[in-house]
Simulated assay, not measured.
Amino acid sequence: MENRIINKSAEMFLKHGFKSVTMDDIALEMGISKKTIYKYFKNKKELIKIVITQLIEKISYGIDFIFEMNLNPIDKLFTIKDFVTYYLKSESSSPFYSCKNTTL
């Protein structure tokens, strides 16, 4: 359940922004109670930290994998660009800017 909450939250945060999505929104979207979310996460701030950390780890792993491929530097650059673009396909520009100047 914890991973399902993280994955759904990541999807919603990327689509609508970190500030716009509430714990109520996540619970409603998943068909669970907000109490279930709080069973796994102390608060929204903790959930956002976990989502961002996992997202960075997954993207970093993918970029490391691309670097290990036998590609010329230009192809590596474009492959990385395509990978990150695909990974953040549902990202509107607002989620990351909404975190700017926010202390997590």
Results as ranks from 00 to 15, higher is better:
26 I>H: 05
25 D>G: 05
38 Y>M: 02
38 Y>K: 00
21 V>K: 01
32 I>Y: 12
11 E>L: 06
41 F>C: 08
38 Y>P: 00
29 E>I: 02
44 K>Y: 13
15 K>H: 05
24 D>A: 11
20 S>K: 14
46 E>V: 15
11 E>R: 03
51 V>A: 10
13 F>V: 02
38 Y>F: 13
30 M>N: 02
41 F>E: 08
46 E>C: 08
26 I>K: 04
32 I>C: 06
31 G>Y: 07
17 G>I: 09
28 L>H: 07
40 Y>K: 00
50 I>R: 13
50 I>G: 06
15 K>P: 01
45 K>F: 04
37 I>T: 06
14 L>Q: 11
21 V>H: 04
20 S>Y: 11
11 E>H: 09
51 V>N: 07
15 K>F: 03
18 F>Y: 13
34 K>N: 12
33 S>Y: 13
12 M>L: 15
43 N>P: 03
50 I>H: 05
41 F>T: 04
12 M>V: 03
51 V>G: 07
13 F>I: 04
39 K>C: 03
24 D>R: 08
33 S>L: 06
15 K>R: 14
36 T>V: 12
42 K>H: 14
33 S>K: 07
35 K>C: 01
31 G>F: 09
19 K>W: 11
21 V>S: 04
13 F>P: 01
34 K>G: 14
20 S>N: 12
50 I>K: 15
35 K>T: 13
27 A>P: 13
21 V>E: 03
19 K>C: 06
51 V>C: 09
12 M>E: 05
23 M>Q: 11
42 K>C: 07
42 K>D: 14
37 I>W: 12
47 L>F: 12
46 E>H: 15
41 F>D: 09
29 E>F: 11
17 G>H: 11
35 K>M: 11
43 N>D: 15
14 L>S: 05
19 K>A: 11
17 G>T: 09
20 S>G: 00
11 E>C: 02
26 I>F: 09
36 T>P: 01
38 Y>A: 00
35 K>L: 07
11 E>M: 06
26 I>C: 07
31 G>W: 07
32 I>R: 00
44 K>H: 14
50 I>N: 08
30 M>D: 02
39 K>L: 14
27 A>Y: 14
31 G>I: 04
50 I>Q: 13
34 K>Q: 13
27 A>E: 08
